[in-house]
Simulated scan of single mutants.
Amino acid sequence: MKRANGIDIGGGRRGSGRSVVVMAAAAVLIVITAIVSLNTGFIRLSPVDVLRTLLGTGTDQQSLILFEFRLPRIVLSILAGAGLALAGCILQSVSRNALADPGILGINAGAGLMVVLVVAYFPGNESISVYALPLLAFAGAGAAAAVIFALSYIRGKGLSTTQLILSGVGVSAGISAAMLVLTIRLDPNEYQFAALWLAGTIWGTSWTFVKALLPWLAVLAPLLFIKACTLDVLTTSDETAIGLGARLSRERLIVLGSAVALAGACVALGGNIAFIGLIAPHLARRLVGPRHGALLPVSALLGGLLLVAADTLGRSLLQPEEIPTGIVVAVIGTPYFIYLLVRMRT
């Protein structure tokens, strides 16, 4: 495979074939996990019952459970996981920091602050608030991202990756404190929702949530896939990227804005989920390498797989109680985060 200035410019049938195999395997695992998830819950449905219901011959109760509760939640988990993984992949590539993640950098916290504000001050019609939440979350996530990147920029040296993590952790802590103060004024029902959301519960159990999230992925994911070659260039040094003809400020603004929008929408409708944007891109790089033409779709598939698997585990481990999906992901993600920290120091 030919290389120029450290960037792959050749195709490579072997690499392409491997990427197709990995994507196919991830898609199959998502389908298998979704089928298992359809059978998981307080009211168990056997595989035969699920098949009959999908074919339209199940009972009214089975149809209600499957089509109105479990299936929307599974689809939402896959979409949110894919969006968070794409956002994390973009942040890691543009910042050139292996630890970048929407949750760690405080972008999730910015989106979450807007969610809590909506719950606290604008409790109203569910369908209206659900469709408005991604826009409001984008505003909060964008404001947090702007502050974090501004604090991380060192004049004459560009973006400091170390400062980026420190700024993200600091901003996230400040926003989290503000959210705790806001929850004091909530009534019991609103407080319960805020607590569940902050814990990372997949709270969207209707098709309304899927319809509200789907357009964000349908528009932004293809845009990022189109920008795959540009992202390959942005991962190099600024001098190399400029020499290859990249408009750094413009391209960074486009891809970072898309990543922030995806993270905000997924967090607003899916719950306060961290570490998916950290783990999925790392696994994808190990499987298909650093080129974004394969890295982005594989990251999205692995993110969807990880989140739907975590949600299934959370609903099945302590039945009839439910472990918030965010906690399950954190149990997996925290050791991996520590592993990355140790690896970067050695």
Rank of each mutant, 00 (worst) to 15 (best):
L164C: 02
E190C: 11
I226N: 10
Q192F: 09
T162I: 15
A177H: 05
T240I: 14
F225V: 08
L180T: 14
E190Y: 10
T230N: 07
G200R: 04
L196G: 15
T208R: 13
A195Y: 11
T236Y: 00
A218S: 03
P222T: 06
T235N: 12
I165L: 11
K211S: 12
I154K: 12
D238Y: 09
M179V: 07
P215W: 13
G204L: 03
A199T: 07
A173T: 14
T161N: 06
A221Y: 04
L151Y: 10
L231C: 11
T208C: 09
R185L: 13
L224F: 03
W207I: 01
S237H: 09
Y153L: 15
I242P: 10
V233D: 04
V147F: 07
L159M: 11
K157D: 11
T183E: 12
L217W: 08
L151D: 09
L220M: 08
W197I: 02
P215Y: 13
L198T: 10
T230H: 06
A177N: 05
Y153N: 14
A241W: 02
A173C: 11
A218Y: 03
L159D: 03
L224E: 02
Q163R: 15
L182G: 03
I226Q: 14
G204S: 08
V147T: 05
V210Y: 00
L196K: 13
L186Y: 06
A221D: 10
G158V: 09
A212K: 03
K157T: 10
C229N: 15
R155M: 08
G158W: 08
V169W: 00
L166M: 12
G204H: 04
E190P: 05
G168L: 02
L231Q: 09
I184M: 08
A199F: 03
S152G: 07
T208M: 11
L159P: 05
G168P: 02
I148D: 03
A199S: 13
M179P: 02
T201E: 13
L220C: 05
G168S: 02
T183P: 04
Y191D: 04
A178E: 07
G174D: 00
A212N: 03
L234K: 01
L198N: 12
Y191W: 07
G158T: 07
K211V: 06
T240C: 09
L166W: 04
I148S: 05
G170C: 05
V210D: 04
L180N: 15
L224G: 00
I184L: 11
F225H: 01
T208L: 12
W203V: 07
L234I: 05
W216N: 05
T230V: 15
T208K: 12
L166F: 08
A221C: 10
L186G: 02
L186P: 04
G170T: 06
R185E: 11
L186C: 06
A194M: 03
T183D: 08
S172N: 10
T240S: 13
A212E: 00
G168T: 00
L180W: 12
G204P: 02
G168E: 02
L151M: 15
T230S: 11
I165S: 00
T235V: 13
L223E: 10
R185T: 15
S167C: 08
I154C: 06
I165P: 00
S176R: 06
D232P: 08
V147D: 01
T162A: 11
L198A: 15
G170E: 04
C229D: 15
T208V: 14
I175A: 01
T230I: 12
N189K: 15
